[in-house]
Computed example of a mutant assay.
Amino acid sequence: MINYKHLHYFWVAAKQGGIARASELLHITPQTISGQISLLEQHFGSALFSKVGRNLELTETGRLALSYADEIFTLGDELEDSLRQGSAERPQLLKVGIAEVVPKTIAYRLLEPAYNMGEPLRMLCKENTLESLLAELALNRLDLVLADGPVPPGLGVRGFNHALGESGVSFVASPSIAKSLQVNFPACLDGAPLLIPSEINLMHVRLLQWFDKQNIHPQIMGEFDDSALMKTFGQAGVGAFIVPTAIADEVVNQYGVELIGSIQDVREQFFAITAERRIANPAVVAITESAREWLA
């Protein structure tokens, strides 16, 4: 079993950039800290630091150990803070992973009901690739992952898919572009400047297939991983862009763009992915139930 005192000395030394600074902070001699870290290295069977000139640098094992130590001691601080508070004041912690392809407005609308339960809530949101978030979910570091699709087959990570609903797609553009595209939709998109999600987004293939089926060939001006960045380019007049119809009105008002038209043949789906088949967390229940009403 890990000696957490040894791990704490290593953690402080790594965060402070060396044993000397850790010694000053902990009021312990450098020799003591060095000896405790050596015992930890013996336990792991691998060096945590390597000497580069006069400095110490983390090895690959050291970087991995630091990432876990960060979480362990951060959780320890949170535990101490929570126990010092009365149970009535202690907020529920909801750890949510948001796949980077999920539009920010959609993510907010999906998560908002958790704050309306009448109970104190502290939400921790992490944005990353779906694969990275599912790995954290499998380690119980997240309660929920929001994604634009179910767990990919063959990923080797266990997760249970809960369909939240789906939305059609709307095309919007800055006024300067929209004025020439609001007649004869969707044929007006042929040759029009267009911004689309990049290929990491499931909508990328669906959209291109729809264009081929309609014999429409827009001028692709850019592809984006981040939908918020795509909206910013669209707002600046680089090209028209797509948004889920469920939030089209909000995007129009927020970005000062105009609606060109909407289609139902291309659908954007949204999923909640949990580590358990049956959802027991009240905040997650509120999120899923509200989403199914909104995206019905």
Rank of each mutant, 00 (worst) to 15 (best):
G239H: 03
G165H: 03
Q254M: 08
L7A: 05
Y68M: 10
R122M: 07
L194A: 01
D249I: 08
V205R: 13
V183M: 10
L295F: 09
S82N: 15
T232P: 00
E100R: 14
D77Y: 11
S67Y: 08
I196P: 01
L56N: 03
E289I: 02
L146T: 14
I33N: 00
P186I: 00
Q269E: 12
G234M: 10
N3F: 04
A99P: 04
L56I: 00
P175K: 02
P282W: 03
I106H: 04
K104E: 15
I279T: 10
E57S: 11
L208M: 14
L58Y: 02
P91S: 13
L58S: 03
Q209E: 15
G45R: 00
F233D: 11
V243P: 02
I177A: 00
R267N: 10
L40I: 08
Q254W: 04
L110N: 00
D212N: 13
G234C: 11
E100S: 14
I279D: 04
Y255D: 11
A272S: 11
I19T: 08
A286P: 01
T59R: 02
H43K: 02
P153W: 03
I72Q: 05
L155E: 12
I98P: 12
A99G: 14
A272Y: 10
V172I: 10
A280I: 14
A13M: 04
N215R: 12
G222C: 10
